[in-house]
């Protein structure tokens, strides 16, 4: 890749994204765009398309950032426990019957001014990563100790979640639905809720593109080159985690996007994080919008969880790509 050679790929990805948005707005159970169903499009389909785009962009960007900071291609944004923590938070809300969300079985009158489900998921995810970071830092704070601490914290949160589920059988189904990821209840208010967090975090991450390239030579050499490695790692992990927590707080856990999209992007336009980060955002947005189309239209009225679609679509495609071109960080 030349010094700016990825820019053509970026423009191409933007065109695909625009096409995905148009397709997403056109296709659905209520039929194509017309004056009669404008209300459906504006209030049901568009928020869903926009939310899908934001979440896809966020998870892909966060995944690429995590991969850069840990110099590990097998890493996804859930590495340090954000998903397990968010899952525990969401499970607590379901189990205590606080949720007024459409996903909850208990239609108990919701006296809360705002839906506590995304709040609990968001802070559950952040808290888990905070614990991971504190534990990891107390053992030296290298990326290996952080990853191990993340494994431990995620296992603990998952165990607590299982314990709660076992004692509250009736919430297994909504929790399970939440964990598979879901865009069906998307509203403009969800978009408004997460956009500030996601936007700030995305700007912070994009500003670290060059630093992530320096980290590619390893901690020692990056330090010898004058890079503030510990600060870069902390900032990038915090921003990527907060963006991920915000995204999954409204949609539940959508897997595979955060690990697959950055790889796909590397195969297209090179391994420099200068291109990987912005490309991941655009391609991730387009991918999730497109994956959501079969998720809401394939089963007629019923919903196919988006996490299932991303994996069914993504996995074979990814294997095919790995066969033709080998991956690396």
């Amino acid at each position: 890749m030349g010094r700016r050679g990825w820019f053509a790929w970026f423009l191409g990805a933007c065109v695909v994204l625009v096409a995905a948005i148009v397709l997403g707005a056109m296709i659905g159970p209520a039929g194509a765009i017309s004056k009669a169903n404008w209300n459906v499009i504006w209030n049901l389909r568009l928020p869903r398309v926009v939310l899908g785009g934001i979440v896809g962009a966020t998870l892909s960007l966060a995944g690429a950032s995590y991969q850069g900071v840990f110099r590990n291609p097998l890493v996804d944004p859930y590495l340090l426990g954000v998903a397990a923590g968010a899952g525990l938070g969401a499970t607590l809300v379901f189990a205590t019957g606080l949720s007024g969300s459409s996903m909850a079985l208990t239609a108990s009158a919701n006296s809360w001014p705002i839906d506590p489900l995304p709040l609990a998921a968001f802070f559950g995810g952040l808290a888990a990563v905070l614990v991971t970071y504190l534990v990891g830092a107390s053992f030296g704070g290298s990326s290996a100790t952080l990853v191990l601490a993340g494994v431990a914290v995620a296992a603990l949160a998952t165990a607590l979640q299982t314990l709660i589920l076992q004692r509250n059988n009736e919430v297994i189904r909504p929790v399970y639905n939440w964990m598979l990821g879901n865009l069906s209840s998307a509203q403009w208010s969800d978009v408004r809720l997460i956009t500030p967090y996601v936007a700030v975090c995305a700007v912070v991450l994009l500003l670290h593109r060059r630093q992530l390239d320096v980290l590619r030579v390893g901690d020692d050499e990056a330090v010898a080159l004058g890079a503030p490695v510990a600060r870069v790692r902390l900032t990038v992990v915090l921003a990527a985690t907060m963006a991920t927590a915000a995204a999954i707080s409204v949609t539940g856990l959508i897997g595979f996007v955060g690990i697959m999209v950055p790889h796909f992007v590397r195969m297209l336009s090179g391994h420099s994080y200068r291109s990987v980060l912005p490309m991941s955002m655009v391609v991730g947005a387009a991918f999730l919008i497109l994956a959501d189309i079969p998720s809401r239209s394939l089963l007629g009225g019923a919903e196919l969880p988006i996490g299932v679609v991303t994996a069914i679509l993504g996995a074979p495609f990814f294997i095919l790509l790995l066969r033709t071109k080998r991956a690396g960080v």
């Binding site: 590397r266 391994h271 420099s272």
Partner: peptide, 18 residues
């Protein structure tokens, strides 16, 4: 030295300007 396999020589030398 850790050499990122997919980095080009020019990109790698540019890191020296960090």
């Amino acid at each position: 030295p850790q050499l990122p396999a997919e980095m080009t020589t020019a990109e790698y030398i540019l890191l020296g300007r960090s």
